[in-house]
Simulated assay, not measured.
Amino acid sequence: MSFSLLGLSATILKTLADINFTVPTPIQNIAIPAIINKKDVLGIAETGSGKTAGYVLPIIMNLQQRLLLKNRHANVLVLVPTRELAEQVKDVFNIFGKNPLFPIKTLAAYGGVSINPQMMGMQGVNVLVATPGRLLELVSSNAVHLSDIETLVLDEADKMLNLGFKDEMTKVINLLPAMRQNILFSATLSKDVQNINQILLKEPVIIKIETEGESLDLIKQVAYIVSNEKKGPFLRYLINHHEMKQVLVFASSTHQVDAIVNKLRKNNVDARAIHSKKSQGSRTESLAQFKSGKLKVLVATDLMARGIDVIALPFVINYELPRSPKDYIHRIGRTGRAGESGNAISLLSTNELDHFEVIQKKMGKQVEILDSEQILKSAL
């Protein structure tokens, strides 16, 4: 199916063509017409399935058809769990909202930075993308009014609930008009997500896209047995041996992320860290440099994973395994996206082998496990 058959405007179709978006993803095929027709939507699909454009495109369509009313307050509210995802969603709205006749103003609001510029930027906002805590701060300061919200989007609802935003989300929802369109997207359909669905959505169009198997087929996975003290040298060997120009490395803690970056820099490998203890300015700059290809190695925690969306990212390395198989899939899902192949490498200490067996069973795939000692010996 083509985007031209989904009811989108000529302006949006031209933008899609300009950035070489030719074929909608399965979730976009169903979500776009449903949202244009003002239906409530529940979408369950993995990261990388096209969920963001699946709601951004039809929301822009609906906004542009009614912008002549010139409301003073935002009409669309998108709640997200992280600052990085807020900026990512804002960027997608900006790409497709460019229309000289009906320009759409989008603002991202989140904590960790001064609230004053966000308060001053509220004038004339059509789409507000926000984390729940900062949104409530803006409401309590009378900087934003939610009385005109016609469409609410909960993006990455499972992540928001996992991060403890349930009470804040409930407070926000209670401030909204009763008559509105509700859109809920999530990577998983957990019990908490089901409960919100039952309270929030009215006769929703339900979309469940099974994409894990398809996307994993595009990822070449390999694991190496490496002692903890040799993981640093072996990581540098992999980066140099494969001549990696762009690689995302995952570690389990902010302390470990910083330690990895320090070691890489001492060995003349261009690397930066991104985690919750970094300032927003540092995080934004690191991510921008990595996306543009100016930064070779970005080292991150799992909390940052869903805000990192890089087209055709060639390599992901697990310096340590995550706690859950789902987090492992989310990590390696940063590569092998949008039809492009990718590589996922895991460095396993001996006490991680049993856990890696569990991960392989959960994702239904066997991964080749090699001995790093033999590889290093042959390389010398």
Rank of each mutant, 00 (worst) to 15 (best):
L146N: 00
F96T: 05
R272L: 15
K105D: 00
L136F: 02
L313E: 10
S2Y: 10
K278W: 04
A130N: 03
G121N: 14
E368G: 07
I199F: 03
S276W: 01
V92W: 13
Y224N: 02
V222R: 15
L13Y: 09
E243S: 15
Q118P: 06
L313H: 06
K231V: 02
D217E: 15
F102K: 14
V41K: 00
Q246I: 08
K245Y: 12
G336F: 01
D192N: 12
N182L: 04
V139P: 06
G43N: 09
N318S: 15
E352M: 08
V299R: 07
L107F: 09
F21K: 13
M122V: 06
V367Y: 00
G307F: 00
S276F: 03
M61D: 15
Q181P: 03
N267S: 12
K377F: 11
Q256R: 13
V153M: 06
E46P: 04
V193Q: 00
N262P: 03
I36N: 03
G164L: 10
Q280S: 06
F356L: 05
Q198R: 07
F234E: 06
V113S: 14
D167Y: 07
M363D: 01
K191P: 00
H355Q: 11
A17C: 09
G342L: 01
V358K: 12
S292E: 15
T170D: 10
K202F: 06
N195A: 13
L77M: 07
K365C: 04
L101W: 09
V23F: 11
F234G: 01
V92G: 10
A312R: 11
S341L: 08
K51Y: 02
I95A: 06
P322M: 10
S276C: 08
K105S: 05
L77I: 07
L135F: 00
N75S: 13
K166G: 04
V41F: 00
E340D: 14
L69D: 15
F290V: 10
V41A: 01
T335Q: 11
Y110D: 11
A338F: 07
P325K: 10
N318H: 10
I359Q: 02
A109Y: 06
P233I: 02
E352C: 02
E150W: 04
I209T: 08
P81V: 05
V358H: 10
V205A: 07
Q118Y: 05
M119V: 15
D354V: 05
K326E: 15
L298E: 09
S147P: 06
L348F: 04
I30N: 08
A187M: 05
N99P: 12
V129C: 11
R306W: 04
L248T: 11
L146P: 01
N162L: 05
A45M: 13
T25L: 01
N142W: 11
G97Y: 00
D217V: 03
T47M: 03
D18F: 10
G97V: 03
A259Q: 14
S279F: 05
R337C: 05
S186T: 00
G281N: 14
E357R: 07
P314M: 10
L138I: 04
E368V: 14
D18H: 08
L370G: 06
H145P: 02
I375H: 14
F315H: 12
I115F: 06
L348I: 05
G7N: 11
E203K: 14
M119C: 15
I274F: 01
N29S: 13
E137P: 03
I60G: 10
S341C: 09
I60L: 10
L264W: 04
K361P: 03
L370T: 12
T170V: 13
P177Q: 02
E340V: 09
